[in-house]
Design a protein around this nucleic acid. Sequence first.
DNA 1: GTTTTAAGTATCATAATATGATACGGCGTC
DNA 2: GACGCCGTATCATATTATGATACTTAAAAC
Lengths: 294, 294
Amino acid sequence: MIHNAKPGLSVNPFPPPRAQTQGTSMDSKQNTLYVASLAKGLRLLRAFDEGNTELSLGELAQRSGLDKSATQRLANTLHMEGMLDKDPDTRRFRPSHAWLQLAYAYYWSDPLVGQAIPKLIDLAQELGETVNLAEMSGDHIVYVSRLPCKRTYFAATIIGRRLPALSTSAGRAILSTYPEQERNAAIDNWPIKVFTPGTTTDRAEIRRSVEEAVHDGFAISTGQMILNEIGVASPIIGHDGRAHAAVQCSVSAHTWSREKIEQHILPALQDTANAISPSFQPYRSGGLGASDPA
Amino acid sequence: MIHNAKPGLSVNPFPPPRAQTQGTSMDSKQNTLYVASLAKGLRLLRAFDEGNTELSLGELAQRSGLDKSATQRLANTLHMEGMLDKDPDTRRFRPSHAWLQLAYAYYWSDPLVGQAIPKLIDLAQELGETVNLAEMSGDHIVYVSRLPCKRTYFAATIIGRRLPALSTSAGRAILSTYPEQERNAAIDNWPIKVFTPGTTTDRAEIRRSVEEAVHDGFAISTGQMILNEIGVASPIIGHDGRAHAAVQCSVSAHTWSREKIEQHILPALQDTANAISPSFQPYRSGGLGASDPA
DNA sequence: GTTTTAAGTATCATAATATGATACGGCGTC
DNA sequence: GACGCCGTATCATATTATGATACTTAAAAC
């Protein structure tokens, strides 16, 4: 019996939103192989986001939940190590270019991206529409690669965005490749967040959408993240029949309809997703024709 | 000054300036506002790069220069905090999606990107060629945004790449906006790394190229990073007359010549760079500048 | 199939390290 | 002109990280 869907890699979901019970810290996770200072430093990094692009020491302390002294020391360390820039006038901190270099390293480490990108480029050029690569990450999806062809809102043009899987075409497409039981568990339990009046909050409706994807092999969603935006996604299926990623395309509802999409976008989209699929292999050491266990 | 990276064994490529004197470590920068554990954790993150995409505990220890126990604890912490994924079979670590989320946060914080991206999209569509946004970072440039329109080699399609400014058209374009004295100091002292047989190592030649950019308002370079690649870049000039960034375009030398570029690419490229310029507000970052204080 | 070697994991006593309260100085505000 | 806020610097304390060692598992060698 499977409690929560916990696919392949051991992906530790995301931040431990610890309530700051200020106790004497015989805290829960304090084994001797947990370095609190490092974790606190990471908290500082995570304090920056969409709405907090530039933080003073005080704000940093507030947002991270650390006291002034700790924040001072950690922020200073991050600055010395080149992870934070500091405006000498305002004394405020900002993410540094190093953050992009981490992304660079990430890209090399992701086995899927290298295979996908050339094909995504071709696809984007062929369609003339924005094409994305999304990967499942716990119960969210992350946009790993984006090839914008039209102007859109900013968040849709930059990589790293993390969205609830259930609210996105990519997430639903990927989910549609999961075994029925897991699929249902996900649909019942995974988080949903409202972004627009059009965001679907009814899980029954999401189920319909996913089951449709099971049947059709692709998912379509409308106005989930932003009004008048339609997303189409086709799963990139791995050797085990499960997808961890999807090729996604976002278009404007003003110029596109469902039919038109199915006719003009879908074929190429699916071809691309399929073309990427075979290369997604796990490494089994060598030659033996070991099929799956169990 | 560091010219060439050691080609032999892969040792720390980006070691923070720190002597390995393992002694009693009343070390240089150890004030009470420097948290060593955090810095060590960052070392672990930096151990991943282009050639090291997936590291075992041992490799991690070796590349970071930390002992086994420290590595164990820190890596474990990073794993618990969701910064590193761990393959349960091979027990090897990999960058997690969180690295992309940091990039996401970076993008919101960079005042230039938001202004530039829509215009870059338009430009890329108009030209049908790969367009990049590069920013100066110490004596290197970093590709902050990329809009590939043609298949190229992988490294040219992903963001966060850091290259010696002198070896790139973007770097030279930006440099061309610096006051003469600084310009010359940079040309004399900034690092150069050889990537192809075509990489210019002669600083006199680089000076010519930069001075040409001073005169023309744009820079062109050929075969610096990869053979048969031509780069054109136009600086994005701030209110103080200095550029911190450039719009760059990479094309194949097989289908493009210098004249053709000047005729068909340059006008739109410069228009775009100029259109972005006014919105750029300067700030200074801390850190790396090994250059002289004037 | 058995032994050897290596790599990852867990434990623990020690002191070195991070801690956070406190005090100082500069800057914009009231 | 005085106050209050925010960033910076200092310091004694004990909490925290340390790294040597021992255990466990997996792969390599025989």
